[in-house]
Design a binder for these strands. Sequence first.
DNA 1: TCGGATAATTTTGTATACAATAATTTTTGC
DNA 2: GCAAAAATTATTGTATACAAAATTATCCGA
Lengths: 253, 253
Amino acid sequence: MTVPDDLSLQDNYTETPVNEPPHGRVLLHGEVVASLRTMIVEGELATGARLPEKVLCEQFGISRTPLREAMRVLASEGLVVLTPNRGATVSEVTADDVDEMFPVMGSLESLAGEMACERITEDQLAEIRALHYQMLLHYRRRELADYFSLNQTIHGKIVGAAANPTLTAMHASLEGRIRRARYMANTSEARWEQAVKEHGEILEALETRDGPRLASILKQHLKNKCATVKESLLKTSPPMKTSVTRNGLSSVT
Amino acid sequence: MTVPDDLSLQDNYTETPVNEPPHGRVLLHGEVVASLRTMIVEGELATGARLPEKVLCEQFGISRTPLREAMRVLASEGLVVLTPNRGATVSEVTADDVDEMFPVMGSLESLAGEMACERITEDQLAEIRALHYQMLLHYRRRELADYFSLNQTIHGKIVGAAANPTLTAMHASLEGRIRRARYMANTSEARWEQAVKEHGEILEALETRDGPRLASILKQHLKNKCATVKESLLKTSPPMKTSVTRNGLSSVT
DNA sequence: TCGGATAATTTTGTATACAATAATTTTTGC
DNA sequence: GCAAAAATTATTGTATACAAAATTATCCGA
């Protein structure tokens, strides 16, 4: 399997503090960071994959300077590991990492829920409600991927409703790292049903602006999600190795 | 006022994922990141200060390449703002930022407290106890700077006792950003007394391994700290402007 | 003298060059 | 034929070069 090798730099955006460029043009490394971040988080670049500069430079059509800047940033985000004189690889996600990340995610979302109850507007609530029922539809139809996508969106909207940029940034960063565990496939029917039930309670707590209740539901919801992921990690065979080559991304089983 | 201009690169360390270098030598940009991060967090480089590449390169004795890499990393940490074609400046810390950061800090420390109660060893507890009573001594003697320093250390030790690297990293990053508000000076006597009282309760909760109680004390403790900082920010005159020059850091009132 | 336009200078963003380390291949000795 | 050593190649880390943008200085007119 091979994907197109021209990763031309469209207008991806970064949340890194970069002021508006006076003349339209933007920093190259930022584009590359956004691109590679997506590729890593979405699993297009597998865990452990080497990231040779020359190849990536050719694919992005840039020189080594901005590419290397991007690598340093991704390393500081924990998505990439740098080994001096031996370059960069996509970082690994161990079961221990998952075990660490979820409690933190639970705290962040719990806070988000509490703040969201104080600040959410009727419009934002209506949006979340719509997403919720759309998600329920996907659940009925057993459309797992669509379900998960909306699920993420809803959690993101709740965090957004908390209107706290620091919280949003930390949540986004951690969410990206957690997403890499890609547990989606192996969710048991019972776990799924339970998650849907919790989402109903989440909406209810939001509607009644019951901050403490929402906080506690979200914390429990995340605890269950953590258990789901760990079950999945145990069952799943180790992820396939992909590598970056001149011809694009190729699976090497 | 001027400080020495040779910021030679000793062995500062980064928590960025960088494997051991096979041959002792380490990545230059990492050293610079650590150095500049400290300078920004400790307030040696004032909020809003421009960071001209040429000057910093001379001071660190390196070329622009690793310096610029360091700038990108600091930008991704939120300590520096990049404006295309106009370079880097130390980011500002507004009252709104403080208002955002503290609730998140409250959540993180609250989680840390809960986990610490589950995992803390007798040895770690003894260490914190020693630090606590040392801190009380500084309080009695009205040694504010020493008090604050130990205070930070204790909070850090509690987070460390939670034994969750993700949590530790996020806490450290946020702690650095909060420290920049440097509220220390204007803490009222009443606030100080209250904080000391809470620290007594913190130690008590740790000793009895009462996770929920510690979590709630810490959350309240951070809420009060937030109020202290905001009082202080209102009272304080805007911070003096320092700039980076060939001769070191110079105050320009 | 002041304001605005133009020119010189500085600073930045990206590309390339060069040196050092690591990986690979070839050679050599047994 | 195989293992170890040597030589070759590739890759990385840092420094420099060059072009584009922004800043500063200069000039000119009123």
